[in-house]
Amino acid sequence: MKTTQNNNSLFRRILQWASESEKESADAPEDPERQEFQEYLEYIDAHDYIEFGAYRYMRYQQRKELGLDEPTFHHHIEPSIPQKKQNVKKSHHKQGLLRKQLGWYRIASVFITCVIILILCLVVMELPKFGDLNAPALNEVAQRYLQQGREETGAVNAITGMILEYRAFDTFGESVVLFAAAISTLLLLRTPNQPLKQRKAGDEILTMVSKYLLPMIILFGCYVVLYGHISPGGGFSGGAILGAALILASLVLGAGEVERVLTSKRVTYITVFSLLTYAAMKSYSFYTGANHVGWAIPKGEAGHLFSGGFLLPLNLCVGLIVACTMYTFYTLFIPTEEE
């Protein structure tokens, strides 16, 4: 009974309900739901790994076959698998060879993992010591970034200078990966023209505290984005903070408050605009030779806000992309009216 061992609270409540009704209604007419539940318990006794939802689904198919009462199925989704009434037990035992015999699958997977741990530990013993000065990873590339990065890029933060100046093309690819993930998630999950489920605004205390906290979170996010080339931070971390602030606002302010201002279309527009701006700026940089020959934008004095050439607008673009993508991921998992 693997499923019942690590049951959640809902399952426990159902169990309690079943046991209680047994005491009360000794001679009362049989409750069909309870009967079904008992059948389910017997079923999971016989089979490992089965969930209540899947069981309900099978029962629903069986009832439909027999032409019994209208099924009370939660989801109004057309069942996509045509099914006949059949012995589930039989097909369950047709599973893979490894899993059939005494859980060989588990033993084998634990064994494989142990072997991998052993090999990795042996490799780690051979690695240079933690914090070793003469480690081969600390080669001339890293030394150049550290010694001449400040003059060449105008960034105090060496990592920002590295990812947005020396390796800017890779960072552009990274942003494109993020954008592609957002688009494919949108394609997979979007249910067009469906109103969001009406949610009540959250708890009173939580709402009050969040209302005072939200401006500060947004301010901090903006600071991390804008000062990414001077202090620790940058477009990715600041964008993540801004996205978290948007998600918190959407959770706390109730249904559709943020969605009204930031519709999914606008969010996509902002993302695409930022990506194109990034591409345009970096194209200009590459067009001029990528080594600051004929550089039109003054680099300014390192350590000031407006310094480092294109670093500040590039950070801004990356921050917008990350914030919008995080928010898009969140909005796609909000339940709509239908579900």
Partner: peptide, 29 residues
């Protein structure tokens, strides 16, 4: 100073991890 190159690599890794997680979750949905 510590080596800045792994920092940039981890940044890339985090972004890819977030993207793949979102994709997996939507497929699971």
């Amino acid at each position: 100073y510590i080596n800045p190159v792994p920092g940039g690599l981890v940044l890339t890794g985090i972004v890819v991890a977030v993207s793949t997680t979102a994709l997996f979750l939507s497929l699971t949905h």
